[in-house]
Amino acid sequence: MRNSAFLTAVLGLVLVGCVQEDPLVDLRDYVAEIDSRPSGSIPPPPEFATFEFVSYTASGERSPFEAPRPVELETEEAEAPRSNVRPDPDRVPEFLESYRVENLTMVGTLAGLQEGDLWGLIRDGDGEIHRVQVGNYMGRNHGEIISISETQIDLIEIVPSGQDNWVERPRAIVLSGLDN
């Protein structure tokens, strides 16, 4: 027992000699050094230019993405006599009349069994392909197909010109890839 008491006393003295007075003295010295440095000033944030708010007031005008109409065309329509052209209200609309002509694309043709019998292939706005021939209608303006060639489909649209007056307008859908 004596030896164990002696061994305990020696180990206690060794441990007391290894312990520092303050274990955080290095950290406190580092913080004191940083605090003693001269402090700099933080530059102010940059000033942002204020922009004037402009409201869009041309919503009733022509879209800037459409070609401007020639002035002479507008005056001709204003001076145009009343025509007897009218869409047939009793005709059952065809499927491709639910799409705008701008959303229809010619992707090819098919030759029929008879000489000169040519079908046009049209891709609608949903990506589906439809077969059309002369006499079919497409587009929202009552466009009747009047001819089909290897490179384009020609149609005549009946469009309103104002005050219950209608005019015929020629239109062509060019084979995709040729209109570039």
Rank of each mutant, 00 (worst) to 15 (best):
R62Q: 15
S147H: 05
T8P: 01
A49K: 14
R62D: 13
I146E: 12
G120W: 01
A172N: 06
A80K: 15
T50P: 06
I158H: 00
R171C: 03
I158W: 02
I34N: 03
L113H: 08
E144S: 12
R140E: 15
L104Y: 01
F53R: 12
L155G: 05
H130E: 01
E79S: 14
E21M: 02
P93Q: 13
P70M: 00
A67V: 10
V134F: 00
V19C: 01
L96T: 10
N136C: 04
A58K: 09
N136S: 15
V16W: 09
H130L: 03
V31S: 00
V71M: 14
W119V: 08
S176F: 11
P170G: 03
P38M: 07
N84A: 07
F53I: 04
Q152H: 09
G135T: 10
N136K: 14
V25N: 04
I148E: 09
E76C: 04
G162N: 10
Q20Y: 03
I34S: 01
R37T: 07
F95M: 11
S83N: 04
T50E: 13
G139E: 12
G135L: 11
I148V: 13
D154I: 02
E79R: 13
G112W: 06
D26S: 11
N3T: 03
V85G: 03
E61L: 11
I156D: 06
L11Y: 00
R37E: 13
P38V: 09
G17H: 02
E94P: 00
G143T: 06
P160Q: 10
R131M: 09
G135A: 11
G127S: 02
Y137S: 12
D164T: 05
V10F: 07
E76L: 12
V16E: 06
G143F: 03
M1Q: 06
P89K: 07
N3I: 05
R131K: 15
M1P: 08
N136F: 13
E76R: 12
L110H: 08
R69Q: 12
G112L: 07
N165T: 04
